[in-house]
Amino acid sequence: MTTQPIKTVAPKPAPVWRHHHILDVDDFSREEIELVFNTTQAMKEVLSRPIKRVPALRGKTLITLFYEPSTRTRLSFELAAKNLGADAASLSAPASSVTKGESLIDTVSTLQALGADIIVMRHPHSGAPYIAAQYVKASIINAGDGWHAHPTQALLDLYTIQEHKESLKGLKAVIIGDILHSRVARSNIWGLTTMGAEVTLCGPPTLLPTELGEQNHHLPPTNIEHDIERALDGADVVMTLRLQLERQQSGLLPSIREYVQLYQLTEARLSLARPDALVLHPGPVNEDIEIASAVAHGPQSVINEQVSNGVAVRMALLYILAGSQKQ
């Protein structure tokens, strides 16, 4: 391959890095997140070249194992792997096959036997990658487990915010929507608070566990606010979450219509936030449900940047992990 090596200040997988797997950001230190930021910066430089490739992971094999449908996350990982010269393959297991007798442990062991160095896994059940990680030597990257965590999404969100805001420290971040069922929210709570931001969670009480706002040693401190206008007051970062339309059938919401009235991020509501507030959404967006189209495509939206940063952040994580595997 006729490519140049990575030339920016080469973030050698430094001693700050302690992870063989990436399961959540709850055990990431500030220094580790900064290492991811710096490495991502280098990867963005690679991506700006005419030939967006470096051979840093040549000979490594990454397999994506998705038990749930996904478009951007899976593609993002596969592109990230290819950009670094790794071989990428994928296995789709429909959610319906997640039953007893179809052992997750057997499946990941098989992928390892097939030569996987890194297994990127998405699973409908919280904690599944933790079980897998106990039984394989390959690195497991959690690409979303149930309601629990989506660490690479959180890291790309953090990276996108800090690109615009220099630092996350002291920022007021508001996460709006179905927090109860959101792995994106959970991981972002950890990431944002670790980086010094103040987090407010906003949504109807049925979609927002009160425990998240209680002082305890299991979760970082957050504020809970059921009124979207009060929540948005003075915000630097506004993150809206996808609303699953079946929440109405399960009795958690009277109607989607009422949700739109009470919790949609509209231009008028966004004007209560700081004028330079950023609007994020993990995608895919239900336009005009949780967020007005005008806001999703408006000047404060960084939704598309999130997607492109996703590739760079995942390249950075693969690069760091591969480096730590050598040691």
Binding site: S126, W147, E211, H218, L219
Partner: peptide, 11 residues
Amino acid sequence: EGVVSARLGLR
């Protein structure tokens, strides 16, 4: 149901 279930994302 409590703080640990909220953290772990388990029903």
